Simulated assay, not measured.
Amino acid sequence: MDSIIKNTNQAPQGQTIFEAKANARSNSKRLLQPSRIRRGIKGETFFKHTLSFTGILLILIVFGILATLFYQSIPAMNALGARFFWTSTWNPVANIFGALPFLAGTLITSFLALIISIPFSIAIAVFLGEYFPKGVFSNFIKNTIDLIAAVPSVIFGFWGFFVLVPIIRMLEMKFGIMPNGVGLFSAALILAIMIIPYAASLGTTMLRMVPASLKEGAYALGATRWEVLRKVIIPYSKSGLFAGILLSLGRAIGETMAVTMLIGNANFLPKSIFAPGNTMASVIANEFTEADNPVYVSALIEMGLFLFLVTFVINLIGKNIIKRATRNNG
C-alpha cells in the first residue's frame, strides 16, 4: 500500500494530490478485502489442481497406450519369439512372420533422410539464427518452414508421387538402373523434406542462445564471421543442434502415409536404396485391416510397440539434451 501511495505524488488530471492518495488508499483496501483474497486463493488452487490433473491424465494415457500395445503383442511374442525381428520371410498365408525387411526399410529410409536433411537443416538454422535473425525476408523464410511442418503427410505423398517419382525414374534410366521410380530412395527424399523444419527450427533457437559476449570477444580478437561461426557458435550450440537432428529422426521413423505412397510396398529385403521396400509403419497401415488371424494382428501390433518404444526413447534423449543445453546456457 505504501508503494501505491508513493506513486501518487503526481495526481491525475482533475484531482489534487490529497484526493489521489485517498483514492489509492481506498483501492488498496478494496484489493485486500478478505473475500477477494479468498476468491483469489480458491481460483489459484483450482487452476493448480486442473494443471496437475491434466499432467497426470497425459501420463496415464501414454502408459495406457503402452500397456495396450504390450498386451495385444503377447500372442505374437509367444508364437514367434525373438526370431520375429531376425527372420526375413513375411507370408501371412503360411503364418510365417519375419519383420527384418521392415526393420531394414525403416532404418535405411530414416537414416538416409537424416543424412540428406542435415546440411539443409544446419544451413537454414545458421541463416535464420546468425545472418538474418530479423527482417521481412527472415520472417518469410521462417513462416515457410513452419508451413512445411504443418502440411499433412498425405500431401507430401501426392506431390512425391506425381513430381518426385518421374524425376527419379528418369535418373534411374539414365544410369542404367531398373526404372522403378518408387523405392527406398524416393521415400527417403520425401522424408528429408518433411523433417527439415524440425531440426532447422530447433537449431535456430539454439544458435540464438549463444551469448553475445562470446561472439563479440572473438570479433575483438580479429576473427572473421566464418571463424566465429565455426569456432564459437557451432561448438557452443552443438548439443542443441544434435538434439534437433535426433528429434527429426524420431519423426522420420514413425512417418506412415508419405512413405507408404512412395516406397513400393515390397515385403522382402531391399538389395539397393533404389529397390522397393517397406517400413514398419507402412506395413501396419497397409495390412492391418486385412489381418485375419490373431497371430497376424498381434505381429503387426508388436511392430507398433517397437516403433512406440524407439520413438519414445529418441524423443526422451533429445528433450534431455535440450533441457541440459538450455540450463547451461541460462
Rank of each mutant, 00 (worst) to 15 (best):
G40Q: 14
D146R: 10
A99P: 07
S73F: 11
S298A: 06
V283Q: 11
E172T: 08
A20M: 10
L269F: 11
F46G: 06
A258L: 08
I148G: 02
G277R: 10
N265C: 01
I37E: 14
S237L: 07
P211M: 06
A125K: 00
L51W: 05
F162V: 15
N286L: 12
G203W: 02
L58Y: 06
N265G: 01
A275Q: 09
T106S: 15
G43L: 13
T289A: 14
S239V: 13
F312R: 00
R251L: 05
K142I: 00
G222N: 09
I195D: 07
F274V: 00
M261S: 03
G129Q: 03
A252Y: 03
A79R: 13
P92I: 02
F162S: 14
I145W: 07
E44I: 13
Y296Q: 01
N27S: 12
D292M: 03
F156K: 07
N139E: 15
R225S: 15
T326S: 15
F70C: 06
G181K: 04
V228H: 02
I59K: 02
K174Y: 13
G203C: 09
A243H: 05
S213P: 05
P276T: 05
A243F: 10
G264Y: 08
P12T: 05
L80N: 07
T8R: 15
I41D: 09
F132K: 15
I168P: 07
H49E: 12
L107Y: 04
A266R: 11
F268G: 11
Y131D: 00
I167S: 10
G43F: 09
M209V: 00
L221H: 10
M261L: 15
I116H: 11
L31C: 09
F308D: 09
V62R: 04
E216Q: 14
A125V: 06
L184E: 05
R25I: 14
V182Q: 13
K48F: 13
P92V: 02
S239H: 07
E172C: 00
S35P: 02
S186D: 06
E130Q: 13
E227P: 07
F175G: 00
K6D: 14
V165M: 06
F185G: 06
G250I: 04
G81N: 00
I168W: 08
V165T: 12
L103F: 13
A150N: 10
T224A: 09
K29G: 00
Y71T: 14
A76Q: 06
W90D: 06
Q33I: 00
S186R: 04
F185R: 03
T260R: 12
A212R: 13
M206K: 09
Q15F: 14
I195G: 10
V295I: 15
F132N: 11
G105A: 04
R327L: 07
L147T: 14
V313H: 07
G105W: 07
G240Q: 10
R38I: 09
I234V: 15
R169S: 13
